Amino acid sequence: MTTWLITGCSTGLGRALAKAVLEKGHNAVVTARDTATLQDLTTGFPTTALAVGLDVTDATQVANAVKKAEDRFGGVDVLVNNAGYGYRAAVEEGDGEDVRALFDTNVFGPVSMIKAVLPGMRARRSGAIVNISSIGARICPPGSGYYAASKAALEGISGSMQKELAPLGISVTAVEPGGFRTDFAGRSLTQSAEAIDDYADTAGKRRKENDTVHGTQPGDPDKAAQVIIDAVEAEETPAFLLLGADALYAYDAVEEATRAEVERWRERSGSTGYTE
């Protein structure tokens, strides 16, 4: 039995993962800003589920969540940074306060969670950290520059941590899901108040009032949850994990296009050294 601490369990992938972890017999600290949304989980698994109110941007609440996990279950074996939300705006349209709030939740919140659980994991020389990113970090769709940047930042942190923590017996996995049928494109998606007409055919097409994706995404959160569990429990936990056939397709397309660009400019790129 291991103890998982999962952020953002009120809906979507976080809820599906919490339920799957509990059904496998593990302990789970399930978190949300409103713990009333977690009542069914604690009712169904009264001895192994612990609901904790958590806003990942609040340092006091972060520390409290980890302490409660330690007091109840002895420590956190697996941290899943799932809490986050989307923000749609052309870069020029983005509001500074909105963008800072986005990064507080999508980047600095996960970092606070990681720092809170690492002392215990280092002491035990074991543990797993799973950071939920997005294929958006790779494909950078119009209108999602700030969101893509927040997830790319989380992936950069994940990559360095993986090298820092592997010698200590702690794995780090960055997960890039494609489109899954969650509330991400609905309740969990915000956008700029301002819309500039010149972006109507690019970022404008992806504003909430013009986006018809919500409720039609191809991915099943329950199946994604099982793959995440399998990855954490694998003999060699992957440092990078794609979820969804659409994510695989997008990854391959971006890699192919990037390689073609590199090859077109290879000679010039390599010509920048000092000559003797």
Rank of each mutant, 00 (worst) to 15 (best):
T190N: 06
D77T: 02
W4P: 00
L165F: 12
D77E: 03
R187E: 15
G270E: 15
T11R: 15
G156M: 15
D40A: 15
R206M: 08
D55E: 10
A116V: 01
G109L: 03
S192Q: 06
R181H: 01
A225W: 00
K19E: 14
T202Y: 03
H214C: 14
A49H: 11
V175Q: 01
M113P: 04
M161T: 06
T60E: 13
Y87V: 01
V262H: 11
E255N: 14
A69Y: 02
P167Y: 09
P110N: 02
G156N: 12
P142K: 03
R207G: 00
C9K: 10
G75L: 11
D201T: 11
Q162F: 15
G12S: 05
K68P: 04
R268A: 12
T60Y: 07
D98L: 01
Q191K: 01
S171I: 10
E209M: 06
K24F: 04
T60K: 12
G96F: 14
E233Q: 08
K115P: 00
E176R: 10
A28E: 00
D104A: 10
P218S: 01
A149H: 13
A153N: 03
D58Q: 06
E92A: 05
A116W: 02
G94K: 12
E263L: 10
R187W: 11
T258C: 13
K115L: 08
F103N: 04
L189R: 09
S158N: 07
C9V: 09
D220M: 04
A149E: 13
V111A: 14
G14H: 08
S144Q: 15
I135Q: 11
G178F: 06
A247V: 05
V227A: 09
A203Y: 04
I114A: 00
L168F: 02
V111Y: 14
A128C: 03
T190K: 07
D198S: 08
S158W: 08
D198I: 11
L54K: 01
T173Q: 13
R266W: 13
A137H: 03
L17A: 06
S160A: 14
T47K: 15
I196W: 01
W265V: 09
A193L: 14
V30W: 06
A36L: 09
V130M: 03
T37D: 11
A83V: 06
L102R: 05
L165E: 08
R187C: 10
V227R: 13
D58E: 08
G270L: 15
E176L: 10
A65Y: 09
E255W: 09
D98Y: 04
V52G: 08
K19T: 15
G12R: 02
D58Y: 06
A250S: 07
K19V: 12
A260I: 14
V78A: 13
P167I: 11
D252Y: 10
Y249H: 09
S160W: 12
W4M: 01
T105F: 08
V111C: 09
A234K: 04
N64H: 12
P177M: 05
A203T: 03
A36S: 14
A239Q: 12
C140K: 07
G156P: 08
Q39G: 10
I135G: 06
E236L: 07
A69H: 04
Y147A: 05
F45I: 06
M1T: 06
A174M: 06
